[in-house]
Design a binder for these strands. Structure first.
Lengths: 198, 198, 198, 198
DNA sequence: CATGAATGAGTATTCATTCAT
DNA sequence: TATGAATGAATACTCATTCAT
């Protein structure tokens, strides 16, 4: 029965993904220590034991979350954007529009941003430097746009990485607001862009 | 012996304050759930039981921290600043310089900012609105400067509260970096000011 | 699966009862302060955590015990006995025989008596009076028999409640002996009856 | 300075006695496990540390209490009583009157009775038999009176020790009532005597 | 000596993980 | 597989004991 076997794997994959998705959101909102497996499983709508069928431990689940909390899509688009024959200002506008739209439409995106940035903050304490995560690639791509903008005279001078970090820091800020507050005034694309624009 | 009795109360007050100060930092760095009383007391350099002489529970200690994590000093200066005969731009510069300097010099200030903002985020989830904390006064004072700046044409249009929130959001961002990372490129005063400047 | 769900509830109810029964005995022998959850759970033969699945706290468990430590059966029989066309002396004999037999046969009965009487003693300190517990009903029923006995001239004069209290006080005394001593000479039915008989 | 040295020892002895007396009452009311040194010292009106100047530990203090909770006086009188040329009935009356009067007048006497009886109950669990305490002497003296009463035909037959134990058990019962309840109807001398009288 | 704040071993309670159903 | 009751190691909290004042 190759059909049923595949279907089985499919169902397993589906459950595993549901757990990951919901956990991403839950961990982003409550933090690692603040998340109880009992609460999490209730939130997902499954039994506590079920989590342990798919993941070794709470720790492993948390780590695995970063596997799905990547920015592949975003990165692909950003990499494409970089090489388009376009002013840095227009590139930044495109990026900012996409990011702000996603932030509002997709809670999961906000959670990804929140979790990754938090992780980056905490890690940078332990390991003085050297994260090879998606996050940093996002940053370096953004830095490239800023570099172009500096040459074009539309963006402020200074370390491009520092500015990229600032830009995404603000995105993190509003990711948090998205996750934690029900009613809030989100800043506009122009506000975000001022982090780097002259 | 009125001397010794007073001295006793003095020592008690001192210990209570030491615990509060050190806990402020510890909670800011590790979060409520991530803080173990055993670790905290070791960090403070006292026995576990000592904490329970001064505070009913971990929860109460956490709440009491917000009592000392006020912005009285900052608020007083800010209120003075508002009424000085000076352009909004110069007022903002003064504020930003003070804030960025404190952020670098005083880890406790960073912790205060981090803890209060976190608390504000979490609370705003439960109660749709209505915090009358120092935090919000800080915001409204800043909003007044922005309002002046808008009239003078030096600051961007839009909800002044939203912009003040943005400004202090960025401060929160670098408070986090100060707390969590050892080596980091902090933004300059000009970078911070761009959140609201035209 | 209505069968399994019901069975589940059944098992839960069973465990809850096991804990209550065994705790009744343990608390009666060791007192509240003298009972450690670790020892109690070991004595029951379950993990410490299990107790907290069924009860909020040690305190609540203790309170709940009084829910099962009632005298429903005893009361029913006693109430029946009161209205039988029979001399007070014979009623007392029947009651005393039942009580003394249970005391020897059923350790749980001894524990119930011990715990309830202890509780009554301690409570009467706080609240000047007014317990509407089973205990007091047991007393008032006994008082009725004594009243009849006084009219028939076979029982001593005096406050019937005081005499009933004396009678059950002696029962409490031998409940304690039953619980605490391995070898002891228990008094006979006639000895018990002399508390109220002429 | 022999005078001041003696005075010093006197004061020490006085404090030691105060602690013992008050502790006797406190332990009788709250039990060993239910007594906190902090509460006890507050009750006595001294600092916690002071207790440890006079006693090695809580355990030792508890043991020492039994040193003052003797029945020397009572025993002396009882031994005198035994050999008086008097009917067992009158001897019992004298004993009962003394005991009931003390019970009402002297809370400390009630506490002694309560503590000693409790101790006896608990001990008899561990050591199958063989207490050489004052308590047992009190019992055996009472048993002698009962023996005389049996010969005189005024007291019920049966093991004299069992009857003596019954008699003092009832005394224990009302010692408890004395300690724990504010308002209670105490039994009379005749009620107490019926434990052994025909 | 007397005190009561400080300590840490001991006890209550929670929660990640296991396992029988 | 999925479940949630059971477990015990980890964590919060208490209290007998110590010790600087």
């Amino acid at each position: 029965m190759p059909k049923s076997k595949e279907r089985c794997r499919e169902i397993r994959e589906e459950m595993r993904n549901t757990i990951l998705q919901k956990s991403l959101l839950y961990f982003a909102k409550n933090g690692f220590a603040g998340t109880k497996i009992s609460d999490l499983s209730k939130n997902i709508g499954i039994g506590q034991g079920t989590i342990y069928i798919y993941f070794e431990s709470k720790e492993e689940l948390y780590q695995e979350i970063f596997g799905i909390a990547d920015y592949e899509q975003e990165l692909k688009q950003l990499k494409l954007l970089i090489h388009l024959p376009m002013s840095a200002g227009r590139k930044l506008r495109r990026l900012s529009e996409t990011v702000m739209r996603k932030l509002q439409e997709d809670e999961m995106f906000a959670a990804k941003i929140a979790l990754n940035t938090q992780m980056m903050l905490e890690q940078s304490k332990e390991f003085a430097s050297g994260d090879t995560s998606y996050q940093s690639e996002l940053y370096s791509c953004t830095a490239k746009i800023i570099e172009q903008g500096q040459k074009e005279g539309t963006m402020v001078n200074g370390s491009t990485m520092k500015l990229a970090d600032y830009y995404w820091g603000v995105v993190y800020l509003y990711a948090l607001k998205r996750l934690f507050t029900t009613e809030y005034e989100i800043i506009g694309v122009e506000d975000l862009e001022r982090t780097v624009l002259r």
